[in-house]
Amino acid sequence: MAGVTHDYAFKHRRKLMAAGWISKELAVILVPVITLISGCIIGYFAQRTGFCAIGGFRDYIMFRHTRLLNGFIAMLVSAFVAVLIFHLLTPLAFENFPWAIIKGLLSPIPGAPPDLSSLAYIILALIGGIGMGIIGVYVGGCPLRQFVMTAEGNLKSLWFVMGMVVGSVIFYLVTVGFVTGLFKAAGV
């Protein structure tokens, strides 16, 4: 009987065990700690370097300065290299890489409002991107830069962060239902 149980567990390992590097029981405790540490590292270096994605595009379009843009490109390339390496070392934790091949070219990684069509996700990506780009230029930086400037004592950025806090709640009370309804009504 023990052998049967073992075989069953082995065959259904992927269903019984959470994917990823550690068990789910451990992960639910460690995730806040690990994200806090990674945030501290990113925040420290972001303050020292002035890292900013929207600032990178702005400086390049206005002055052809590439310093910040190079940072964003380096992040994009290293994100790909890193998941490629970890996918080869621990396939179970990165089983949906590369996403476009496994899940389809026009299916997004979850994050945007669920259950919409591919066309709707492309429209949302374009509109969302344009909105972020315009606002980011007017307030002088992307969300990460605003957090770092808040940490530097800039009270304007603190109000921006406050806006983001209130915006998080407003999104789920108002925006997500409104926009999803709009797409459903338009049949997109």
Partner: peptide, 29 residues
């Protein structure tokens, strides 16, 4: 600006950085 940026960003489901992470992971949206 903060309120609006949150609405646009969450409709897309990413900030510029997660957009790069998603593209790096193979999400062409």
């Amino acid at each position: 600006g903060g309120v609006l940026l949150m609405q646009f960003g969450l409709l897309f489901g990413a900030c510029p950085y997660r957009a790069a992470l998603r593209l790096g992971y193979g999400d062409f949206i």
